[in-house]
Nucleic acid binder design. Structure first.
Lengths: 117, 117, 117, 117
DNA sequence: GTGGTCTAGACCACT
DNA sequence: GTGGTCTAGACCACC
């Protein structure tokens, strides 16, 4: 994975993990790599791993068992929440931004159709 | 104007000025406030004002006449460019993001229709 | 029993056993489960069981007979000691904490009365 | 300030700051010391300061202005929340614990009266 | 000067 | 082996 040096690494990795979860590449309840392994995988410092897992835990996406490791929550509801959080953010940003620069619904949709080709 | 303290103030002000220009609230060739006035208007640090004008000038959106102040370019072409730059950024971010979290074109457009209501 | 993963499991189990003892659910002189059984009961690692018994023994609450197992002390005095140790800890923590955040005796007792309803 | 080496420094400092706020020693909206200064005051590492402010921000107790510093929230409501959070935690822990080891309301209040002398 | 991020590396407690 | 905490020190963007 290549990092965009304009946005914090930990943010990018968190996003990456969230996407892996909602795509089912990482199952609910599954063990996540140890902090050290995550550091190796993404070529980051173990401290950064630790920060990543801490944030995920705070969002209720993972939890940790002392001495055992970090695990994905088993709460199915979370899956939906994550997906919504991610898409919601994209929609809001997009729609609000387009309004701000003066585009109406119809124009936006027409342009979107073109862009998607 | 309220700032989101997570994103640089100068970025937010630049965006604000660009939007005012493409909406015609600030006309082509029109004089922009002095750095000091800009600082007062937005309640920002004068250093930040000067950074803002420096960036706007670099993008060809404004130019300065020594002793007279800073003016918006008279180049109409710029208007279109700004609009495109802003919308381009929004589209890329949106489309790329939606792909990443697994939404296809049709779903996106359907959801967008709903959101716009 | 559900564990709070923020506090060491062995601490939680030790507390649980102490409470069982002072409540008489486990009698003085009674045999405690083998390390292996304890591990099964609490769904913990056998290593953790052995740590638990080691600590209990150190506090004089249990003792081991080689080849026979671990037993609760027969010393009645211990019962009182345990109870005091536990309640002492609770009182100190509570009173000190309430002082720190600025509550006086009378307020504390009044609030306590309310909470108990 | 002396630290209890059994509980994380950042937790203790956070508590200390919260108490200073609810006691009015630090006013609402007031600037907190810079991360570096906090580190000097408490004799901790600047990284630890940074962690402390991050947590406070997450709890809505402080906010940060880039390049300017960290400030206490101006929301009066927060004051009450903090006080409640702190006292609530103490009460719950105390009452639940005393119940667990078999003390009834009257005994508890009587003992508390004695302890307070 | 101010916070934000990251690396490096250490030590500890828990399982 | 696993996470949690802390120190040390660096670099950066922002104001």
């Amino acid at each position: 994975m290549e990092f965009d040096h304009k946005v914090p690494i930990y943010i990018q990795v968190i996003r990456d993990i969230k996407i892996a979860i909602i795509k089912g590449q990482i199952g609910l309840g599954e063990k996540l790599p140890s902090g050290r392994d995550l550091a190796l995988q993404y070529k980051i410092n173990p401290n950064t791993s630790s920060r990543i897992y801490k944030e995920l835990e705070q969002e209720g996406i993972s939890f940790t068992k002392r001495g055992l490791g970090t695990f994905v929550t088993e709460d199915q509801q979370k899956l939906i929440e994550i997906r919504e959080e991610l898409s919601e953010g994209l929609f809001d940003n997009f729609i609000f931004g387009m309004k701000e620069i003066g585009y109406q619904k119809d124009e936006v949709i027409e342009m979107l159709n073109k862009k998607y080709k």
